[in-house]
Design a protein around this nucleic acid. Structure first.
Length: 269
DNA sequence: TCGGCCA
């Protein structure tokens, strides 16, 4: 039930936005051993990307999304991985690397990390591709596993698609500024710039160990947010001066206050 | 014909 029909790994659009205004430009199907892989080139307002869906023999599916530029990088890595795989001898139970990782690479695209690990287990060797997002950190990663014997076929299919559609992501993604991270006490703040069909926005996430919340600020209002922030910064400075002034004044007048209280007690009973 | 040791 945890890994049911609900897709995860929506890494290119906020939830709920990915279906509408999204068109499929091409699709390829690969049968690799017991698995089927669908490589779909898609396009939405944010640009072009490839959806890779893996469907297991039991119908279970998982999928990852790759920007076209990342897909090109992945394609190149697939060549190195399959060269490396071809150079390997038969699996040697004596000499198993820790975690079974024979070779690893990482790709970074915006706030996403793609981990490529050539691994082996009792079933054989495979390339595991897992994606993590800063925004979804802590949540389940989306990942697929390509049987090592199918890496070349996978690479060739990817090459076909990239030759047809290029490696340019399109959209405005490339022009968006990088996200930032800030730690205050035991809280983390993430500033992530994104874009949907309503424009550019900043997602500010507050993340603690067991708590996460976020606000989404449209780009149009950033300057007003800044002004209000600056205003409060000023107010706190002024306020701090006022308070210490009041404290100083109270101390100066303390003797007079005490005298007047004493006088009152004396005169008025 | 599978199946991928992270709660």
């Amino acid at each position: 039930m945890y890994r049911s029909r609900v897709f995860r790994g929506d890494v290119l659009s906020p939830p709920g936005q990915q279906q509408q205004g999204e068109q499929e430009l091409a699709t390829k199907m690969l049968q690799i051993q017991s698995k089927r892989f669908y490589l779909d080139v898609k396009q939405n307002r944010r640009g072009r990307f490839i959806k890779v869906a893996e469907i297991g023999a039991d119908g279970r599916r998982s999928q990852i999304f790759l920007a076209l530029s990342t897909a090109a990088e992945f394609r190149d890595h697939l060549s190195t991985f399959s060269d490396f795989y071809a150079s390997l001898g038969p699996p040697n139970p004596e000499n198993v690397p820790e975690d079974g990782k024979l070779k690893s690479e990482m790709m970074i695209k915006d706030n996403r990390r793609y981990y490529l690990d050539l691994k082996e287990n009792s079933r054989g060797r495979f390339l595991r591709v897992s994606v993590s997002q800063t925004i979804t950190r802590g949540g389940p990663r989306s990942q697929i596993a390509i049987p090592a014997q199918g890496m070349i076929e996978f690479r060739d299919a990817l090459t076909d698609l990239l030759e047809e559609f290029g490696t340019d992501d399109g959209g405005f993604k490339g022009e968006l500024p990088e996200g930032r991270h800030m730690r205050v006490e035991n809280k983390n703040f993430y500033f992530d710039i994104g874009q949907n069909n309503r424009g550019i926005y900043m997602r500010i996430s507050e993340v603690k160990t067991n708590f996460r919340t976020a606000i989404t600020v449209p780009e149009k209002s950033w300057a007003r947010f800044r002004d209000i922030f600056a205003d409060y910064c000023e107010k706190m400075k002024e306020g701090g001066e006022k308070v210490s002034f009041q404290v100083a004044r109270s101390i100066c007048f303390l003797p007079f206050i005490l005298c007047s209280i004493g006088y009152r007690l004396l005169v008025e009973g």
